[in-house]
Each structure stands twice: as structure tokens, then as C-alpha cells.
Design a protein around this nucleic acid. Structure first.
Length: 649
RNA sequence: GCCGAAUUAGCUCAGUUGGCCAGAGCACGUGAUUUGUAAUCUCGGGGUCGUCAGUUCGAAUCUGACAUUCGGCUCCA
């Protein structure tokens, strides 16, 4: 008799050992069809592995992570089998799953190379093997047998893996003519895999270590239904269309120049307009929350970074110091703004009554990123943080933290980011030596963050061991229109820098005390944020942000004067407007300006000139009829005010 | 930085096994037209084919080095 406890706490009894599939079948035929793997007392098992003792069981389908992982793991094996078919003698490293799909690191036989063209061939073979519905069979073998087996295959990669395993825990999986060392679990047979796409080939070091051999990594993704693959490919296509590098070029927002250097973005006028709009907005919000703007230079004496500790930790891997010619003083391009801000804090003695001090700066910083790492605006060597440092008393920490969360919400609302998650990063309790500062301070800081999040009603996930060495933090991840996650804003508590810079304030008790610092950047960096904004909106920015809000389109050159009059009036009313004076037909002007993603197109001809009106077209919505120019201005200003309501109440 | 791929006009891309002055569309300039809700017509200018070497009678095309970009690896205060 075996008792199986299901997630809803109900208990099913079976007369003898039972496997996951049989349990699913006993619940519903539908589930039996969909089930992919099963967790037995928290460990994921093959569906066909017999459960001999009482256990708590959860069945996994495509809809949960474990189900997908099982599916993709078996897909990796299927790919390996197909590759071995075309390239006998290939050595196989590891073949794990990733967020979307899987990869396998392989070492092809001497002189062989895999190209993109081979992928289709391999996909075909995989489909052929999948259709054979080959059973995937698990077997346990001794370490010695495993070593012998892979010695025969001459696969030193697997031998290295086996040598690190404990005897008695080694399992093999076999399907068709292919056997692989694997912990599992796997699908019952290859027939579950219906749709296959091998996505790319890349080089990867064996076990991620650059001293090791470079292997060939083949990425792929598979699905239980052809339709799912089609949807996935359509999503990739859409992502390509929304790529911020492409849209940035089309909309003339930013560019790069080899002469200036890689990873150093140049902001074009329209991109600058967009960025200033964001900066002005945040400055207003910050002003409301009691921040003060400061400005600091782009370089700082190397001693500053020795004091902060950054030189010791990152000096070797950053841009090297700049020396003055006559005196030989050493300066660093600033990799962050906080040391400068600490010096501003110190310029005058502080009383407990002065705190909190909230010091904000759009500070441009320079970090050396390896050339292969650079990517559009999301990974650059020079970027501007919407940085601020809050110096406060320990008893003010929680309140200050909550206020920062408020600011981040105001921004998310203005930008229309609805889907976010917040991650609280705490210490790894096992490794106290990794962190600086007293246990009491850490306890208090972590508590403050957790409580602040609770009181603000944030949905959070908590990760142990993800804290910075100097303090715990809260990071905001947003999900964009295509469901991709991006890390944006961050709030970090810091006990380290106040210590290193010996920051103090005089307390009510007339003694010296140490303030706590909060680092925070709601956008993260302007560059990265704008990249995400572009991909989220596909370049159709909220009205308040977009560089050009309206374009006036005269029907013919005869009405250019009236068009300019309209445009001047709107510009004076704070609506960014230009005139399309080209000698083109109206259909052409509409088309071109729609494609430029201009929110409002204002058509003016004889009728409008006579009645002081404009004929309004909203981007993507077509003709909206005509109205007085002044009415249109009010209408637009209201729309902007609605979008920014968070700022005004 | 490492592995792989790419680089042709401002942009998007053609360019067959090395062989006449290297092509197209868009953009730009010009002339005509004076237009009513997603592409009017005419003519024209523009490229040392990423850079530098090499092979060859001859190189956008073959080889090498370098630069940049892309996809990964690694790293990320």
C-alpha cells in the first residue's frame, strides 16, 4: 500500500508502487495527457519512475517551470542524438535548460565545424527521431562502469564530470541509439516533442572558465505544439522590430561613432529632448520630496576612491588613472557619484536636525566594460545615473526608504509600466564574512526594508545572498510589452561609505553619530531606461515624453503661413510642434508623419484658415474632426496632465 | 578580453565561379504640380565596397592583420 499526498492535501492510496503517470491518470485523462514530470518529496522525478513509499507528490505540466525544464532537458538529449548522427565522435559536455529552451556544449571531432546551415538539418533529424517516440530509459550504474563507458567513448568532458560525482548516484539515460550521463529527469519518450527550433551557435568555455577549452554551444527551443513555436517566433520577430538600436536610429534619438569610441553614446537633438523631459520630470518629483540638486566634476583624485574602497576592489579593472603633466597628480574618471557626494556632506558640520539630507545629481559615470559586452544603450562605457544619496539617522531609515518607493511608483505610473516585481536582496546567513558592518546594523537595515515594502504593499521576492557587500537592497524589475524582464531602479542601504568617509552628525545628546546612506536610482541609468522605454513602447512614447508632440500639415504651400501661426501658438502653449512644409500631397505627409510616430497630426487648409481651427488626427486612430486651435491646446495639455497625475497629487 | 558571424551611398539591401565606368529603393538636391486624411511626376548629385597589407595581368569578390557591429562566454561598484 502506497499513500500519495497531493498538493491540495488530499491522499490517494495505491495497492502497490505507482508512477507519476498512473497517479495523473487516476486524477483525470486530461492531466494524464499533459503531465511531463513529477515532484516526489520535492525532488523532480521521471514520470515512469516507480514510487515505492508514501510520498508527497506534485505533477508538472508545460505550465510550470519544472515541467518545461523536463521537456527542454529531454530536448537537449534529442539534439545531442541528432548531432551524434551527423558528427560521430562528438564529445558532449553539459546540456542544461535556460529561461527559454536549452543548449548543449559540444566538442566536435577534429576538423569538423558546425555552421548555421547545419541547424536545419539537425532540426529535421530531431523531428524524425521524435516521431519514433523512442522511450527514454533511466538506469543507475556504478562510478567505475561509468568511467569505463566514457573512456571507451574517449569523452574526457564526461569523465571530468563523473570523477566529481559520488558513487551510487550516477544515472544514465538512453533513447534510441543515444546514451548520456544525466541526473534527469526526462520525458517518458521523445514523442512529446512536436516543434523544434535551433536558434543559434556560439562559443562557450568548458565550465565557463576561459582557461579551458572553447566548446561549441548550440541553443534551441522546443514545444509540445507547433502553434506555440509559431507564437514564439512571432514574438522574436516583434522583439526585433522593437529593438531600441533600430528604433533609436529611425527616430533619430542617438548614435555611436567609431571616432568617439565604442560604448559612448551620442545623444541627437530628439533623443536629448526625450531625456531632458525625463530628467525634468524626476527633478520635479524629487523637489517635492525634499531633494536638493548638486553637481560634481567628471573626475576625482584617486585618493577619493582609495578612501571609498572602490580603487582597491575595482581599480585594476576600470579605466586607468589620468595624470597631470607637471605635478603627476592622479585622477580617475568617476565610476560613481557617491564619493563626491560624501565630500559634499562633509563640507560643513551637521546636526541631527539637518538630517535627512537628500542629495541628487544626474551624474555621468564611466566604467570599463569589456568590448564584447557592449550592447546598444543597455551596456555602455559612459552613462548618466539619476543618482541620489540620502544621508539619514538610523531611526529615519525606514521612512526614507518608503519615500523612495513612492517616487519609483510615481515614475512607473507616468511611464505606464504596470507589471513590475521588486526583489529584496539580503545577506547570505551562512557567509557573514562576505559583508562589512555590524550585525546589529544589518539586522536593522534588513528589517527596515522588509517593513517598508510591507507597509507600501509591494509584491516582493526575497533573495538571500544577493545583497551588496556594504548593505541590503531593493531592486525593481519591470516586465515589458513582450513579457521580457528588465532590471531598472534600485535602492541600496549603505553603512560602509559613511564609515570610510567618517561622516558624522552631532546628536541631541551632543555626541558624534554616524549617518546611514541610501543610494537610489529610480531609472537606474538614463541610457538603459530609455532603451527599455523604447522597446516597451515600440517608440510610441507617452504624449508628455515624446520629442515631437504635434506636426502641422498644410494641404498645400498656400497654407504654410497659417500652419506656422498654429505651430507658434502651440509652442508658446508648451506643446512641442513643428510644421511639415514639404511640397508633398497631404496623403504623403500623413503617411510619413504616422511612421515617425508623431502623436498628433494637424491638417490645415482653406477651411481651417478661415475658421481658426485645425483638423486633428491621432496617431493610429485616424481623423478626429476639427476644433479651434486653442481648444486643441487645452485638450493636449489636459492629456499630459492626466498622464502625470502622480506628480500633482 | 575570448569564440563565431557580419561590414557595399545618409538608411535598408542586390552584386552570380575574380573580368565592361559597382546597382536598386528610400533619403537628399532640382524642375513641374498647389494638392483634403497612409507613398505625384521629372531630372540630378552622392560610394578610394570598414582600414591596412598581400596573392593576381586584373580584387567588392581570394588570404592575413587591425577596427567596429551582432550572437554567445566571462564580468558588472
Amino acid at each position: 500500500m502506497v499513500q500519495i499526498t497531493l498538493p491540495d492535501k488530499s491522499i490517494k492510496e495505491f495497492p502497490e508502487a505507482v508512477d507519476g503517470y498512473e497517479i495523473a491518470k487516476s486524477i483525470s485523462p486530461r492531466l494524464a495527457k499533459d503531465v511531463l514530470s513529477v515532484s516526489v518529496n520535492g525532488e523532480v522525478w521521471d514520470l515512469t519512475r516507480k514510487i515505492t513509499k508514501n510520498a508527497t507528490v506534485k505533477l508538472h505540466t508545460w505550465d510550470d517551470r519544472e515541467g518545461k525544464e523536463t521537456f527542454w532537458h529531454s530536448s537537449a538529449h534529442l539534439m545531442a542524438e541528432a548531432i551524434e548522427h551527423f558528427f560521430p565522435g562528438t564529445k558532449f559536455g553539459i546540456g542544461p535548460t535556460v529561461d527559454t529552451g536549452f543548449y548543449y556544449d559540444i566538442d566536435l571531432p577534429e576538423g569538423k565545424q558546425l555552421s548555421e546551415k547545419d541547424l536545419q538539418k539537425i532540426e529535421q533529424k530531431m523531428l524524425e527521431l521524435a516521431r519514433q517516440k523512442n522511450e527514454i530509459v533511466r538506469s543507475e550504474i556504478s562510478k567505475e562502469d561509468a568511467l569505463n563507458m566514457f573512456t571507451t567513448k574517449n569523452d574526457e568532458l564526461k569523465l571530468e564530470l563523473i570523477s566529481e560525482l559520488e558513487d551510487g548516484t550516477i544515472t544514465l539515460y538512453n533513447q534510441g541509439n543515444f546514451t548520456d550521463l544525466c541526473r534527469g529527469p526526462h520525458l517518458p519518450n521523445t514523442g512529446f516533442i512536436k516543434a523544434i527550433k535551433l536558434t543559434s551557435i556560439a562559443g562557450a568555455y568548458w565550465r565557463g572558465d576561459e582557461h579551458n577549452k572553447m566548446l561549441t554551444r548550440v541553443y534551441g527551443v522546443t514545444f509540445p505544439k507547433q502553434k506555440m513555436l509559431e507564437e514564439y517566433l512571432a514574438m522574436l520577430e516583434e522583439a526585433k522590430k522593437r529593438d531600441h538600436r533600430k528604433i533609436g536610429k529611425e527616430m533619430e534619438l542617438f548614435t555611436f561613432s567609431e571616432e568617439v569610441g565604442q560604448g559612448l553614446p551620442l545623444w541627437l537633438p530628439k533623443g536629448t529632448q526625450l531625456r531632458m523631459q525625463l530628467e525634468d520630470f524626476l527633478k520635479k518629483v524629487q523637489k517635492k520630496y525634499g531633494y536638493e540638486q548638486v553637481m560634481t566634476p567628471h573626475i576625482g583624485d584617486v585618493r577619493l576612491y582609495k578612501t571609498s574602497g572602490h580603487y582597491e576592489k575595482y581599480g585594476k579593472d576600470s579605466f586607468q588613472t589620468i595624470k597631470t603633466p607637471a605635478e603627476g597628480e592622479e585622477y580617475m574618471l568617476k565610476p560613481m557619484n557617491c564619493p563626491h557626494h560624501c565630500e559634499i556632506y562633509k563640507w560643513k558640520p551637521k546636526s541631527y536636525k539637518d538630517l535627512p539630507i537628500r542629495m541628487a545629481e544626474f551624474g555621468t559615470v564611466y566604467r570599463y566594460e569589456m568590448s564584447g559586452e557592449l550592447h546598444g544603450l543597455t551596456r555602455v562605457r559612459g552613462f548618466t545615473q539619476d543618482d541620489a544619496h540620502i544621508f539619514c539617522r538610523p531611526d529615519q531609515l525606514k521612512d526614507e526608504f518608503k519615500k523612495v518607493i513612492d517616487i519609483i511608483f510615481i515614475i512607473f505610473k507616468a511611464i505606464d509600466f504596470k507589471d513590475y516585481t521588486a526583489q529584496i536582496s539580503l545577506r547570505d546567513p551562512e557567509k557573514p564574512e562576505k559583508y562589512i558592518g555590524s550585525k546589529e546594523n544589518w539586522d536593522k537595515a534588513e528589517q527596515a526594508i522588509i517593513e517598508a515594502c510591507e507597509e507600501k504593499g509591494l509584491k516582493t521576492v526575497t533573495e538571500l545572498g544577493e545583497a551588496a557587500f556594504y548593505g541590503p537592497k531593493l531592486d525593481f524589475m519591470i516586465k515589458d510589452a513582450l513579457g521580457r524582464n528588465w532590471q531598472l531602479g534600485t535602492i541600496q542601504v549603505d553603512y560602509n561609505l559613511p564609515e570610510r568617509f567618517q561622516l558624522e552628525y552631532i546628536g541631541a545628546d551632543d555626541n558624534r553619530h554616524r549617518p546611514v546612506m541610501i543610494h537610489r536610482a529610480p531609472f537606474g541609468s538614463m541610457e538603459r531606461f530609455i532603451a527599455v522605454l523604447i522597446e516597451h513602447t515600440a517608440g510610441k512614447f507617452p504624449l508628455w515624453l515624446t520629442p515631437e508632440q504635434a506636426v502641422v500639415l498644410p494641404i498645400s504651400e498656400k497654407y504654410n503661413d497659417y500652419a506656422k501661426k498654429v505651430s507658434n501658438f502651440l509652442n508658446i502653449s508648451d506643446i512641442r510642434t513643428v510644421v511639415d512644409e514639404r511640397n508633398e500631397k497631404i496623403g504623403r505627409k500623413i503617411r510619413d508623419n504616422e511612421l515617425k510616430r508623431i502623436p498628433y497630426l494637424l491638417i490645415v487648409g482653406e477651411k481651417e484658415t478661415e475658421t481658426e481651427t485645425v483638423s486633428v488626427r491621432r496617431q493610429g486612430e485616424g481623423d478626429k474632426g476639427s476644433m479651434k486651435t486653442s481648444e486643441f491646446a487645452d485638450f493636449v495639455l489636459n492629456e499630459v496632465r492626466d498622464q502625470l497625475s502622480g506628480l500633482y497629487n
